[in-house]
Design a protein around this nucleic acid. Structure first.
Lengths: 120, 120
DNA sequence: CGGTTGCTCAACCATTAGGTTGATTAAAGC
DNA sequence: GCTTTAATCAACCTAATGGTTGAGCAACCG
């Protein structure tokens, strides 16, 4: 749907507290690398790297404005992630009712099939 | 609430495709390590490790049933994750309207006060 | 009892991740 | 034109990941 949402990259990106904080910061509006770096006592380079990770995960996009390269949030990936989780929760409830008390969610709409994966 | 939901661990756990697949598999019901390992051509040990990761992330719980140690999904962490994402999206929309087109979501219901987080 | 089944523990290995310092590019600002 | 500002590139280090093999433990099977 969002085309190629890389769940590996997206989840991975959010697995880091610094990155999560940056994302939350960006939720308030675009920011330059320097601005993003400020609260973290990390080098600019480190922050730049984090930004790269977030960008490759599709969570942020970069602009170019004079010498500055402000970053701004990129919604779809976030939406995609949320969707995956919600969708997953739906799958959980379907055919495995015991869980609806755990997840406290609504009844399953339809069956589906799913298959494995090859890794690394 | 879910007390200490470790976002680092939880997002991190889901950042791996094998682990995600295992979680999806578990969504259909508890499974032993062997059963979980089967589709992946990995050693049992590797799968066992993944299970440990998932367990530490609070995503699964282990039982003990003779020599078997079946794993089953543990809803709250999943729910917590989803909540974080949804909550975050809410933060995004509030006070930064440009994003509602990005996130393609519903209009913000009301202003509210909710503020950041400290990490690391 | 001895063997098999189901799994974990331990040691190890290769790759990646998060961070650093140092050098370099690129656009402004006198 | 040189210097400052903003950021990236490059090399490097350390620690964590994802995987392996091999040994060990616990419970059941005959």
């Amino acid at each position: 749907m969002t085309a190629t949402l890389d769940l590996d990259a997206a989840f991975g990106a959010l697995a880091d507290p610094t990155r999560r904080a940056m994302v939350q910061r960006l939720a308030r509006g675009p920011a330059t690398v320097g601005e993003l770096a400020e609260p973290f006592d990390l080098t600019l380079q480190a922050v730049s790297k984090h930004l790269t990770v977030l960008t490759r995960a599709g969570l942020v996009e970069r602009d170019r404005e004079a010498q500055r390269r402000p970053a701004r949030l990129c919604g779809p990936a976030l939406a995609g992630l949320t969707e995956w989780l919600l969708d997953f929760r739906t799958h959980v409830t379907e055919g495995y009712e015991r869980l609806d008390e755990l997840l406290a969610h609504d009844p399953p709409p339809s069956p589906s099939a799913q298959r494995s994966r090859r890794s690394r």
